[in-house]
Amino acid sequence: MKRISASRELLLLIAIALLLALIASRFPAFVTPANLAAVFNDTSPLILLAIGQMIVILTKCIDLSVAANLALTGMVVSLINIAAPGLPMVVIVAIAIGFGILLGMINGILVWKLAIPPIVVTLGTMTIFRGVIFLLTEGKWVNSHEMSDAFKAVPRTEIFGLPVLSWIAISAVILFWIVLTRTTLGRSFYAAGGNPNAATYAGINVGRTQFWAFTISGALAGLTGYLWVSRFAVAYVDVAGGFELTVVAACVIGGVSIMGGIGTVLGALLGALFLGIIANALPVVNISPFWQMAISGGAIIIAVVLNAQANRSPGRIILKRAEHAT
């Protein structure tokens, strides 16, 4: 029952614990609370994007445009900041989320109303979004000195010892955990991806549900866009280039099934943390950071093999003897 679905996350949790123990055995400084908090903070953008991506994948879709959305929204809010440095940060954040939603809705509409395969739609919007950044800036960078101090301060501001960036990731985890487990829309994501035909019978509009998934993914990508450019204090065309695949990797490692209907916020969180810990640990343990890509590739393959075995359904059982055994 619950055990089986929980075991995926449990397995990953154990893997993360083993990984940390291994690092700690040689480099105890890595597992000090301060350093772990720093690792978490560094992984926060990936966590935010992985939650959005997980919801999209739940509905049997994929969003390859998240990193481009992040870059475009980041650039838009940077330009707004240059044009109107006095604008309150609340407004900037609202614009980032709103603009991200708009970009997500474009994907969603194309998937819902025109039934274009999600991989094609987001492959297309991915290149378009990046191209639009170029059109906006003619390839110029927005550098640190052009951004207002308030603009750069938000993600770094510490509350109760943790930066705002971390708090946003924590809030998103809690918020979307509630949305996915306790709201009708949240359960519809699982239903629409797990069994689209049955979802239609249950009165769920599968296309519209997918639309909302892309919208959420867009909102999170937009928010992350602002956080990213303000944290690194730079915006340019190739911000977070190729990051969409890291995000998908975090989901896959977190036990999200690419076939739809299976996945949890906890899984996405752990998948992102797994990749974040490896990225942060490599320089510490004196392994060249150039190992990171191969390790995450290996992790994806191992994760997908393990997930496939865990999800293999027993099928219909006819023999009475076997039926009693369940």
């Binding site: 695949l245 896959v252 690419i258 890509m293 191969a294 590739g297 994806i300 393959i301 997908v304 093999v305």
Partner: peptide
């Protein structure tokens, strides 16, 4: 052989293959 979805498998091997290149060559 293992019946895995090709999109995920090849996202994984994509990182793996290029990752090996990075291990060998670095910068």
């Amino acid at each position: 052989g293992l019946g895995l979805p090709s999109i995920v498998v090849t996202i994984g091997t994509m990182s793996l293959y290029r990752g090996i290149s990075f291990i060998v060559l670095g910068d």
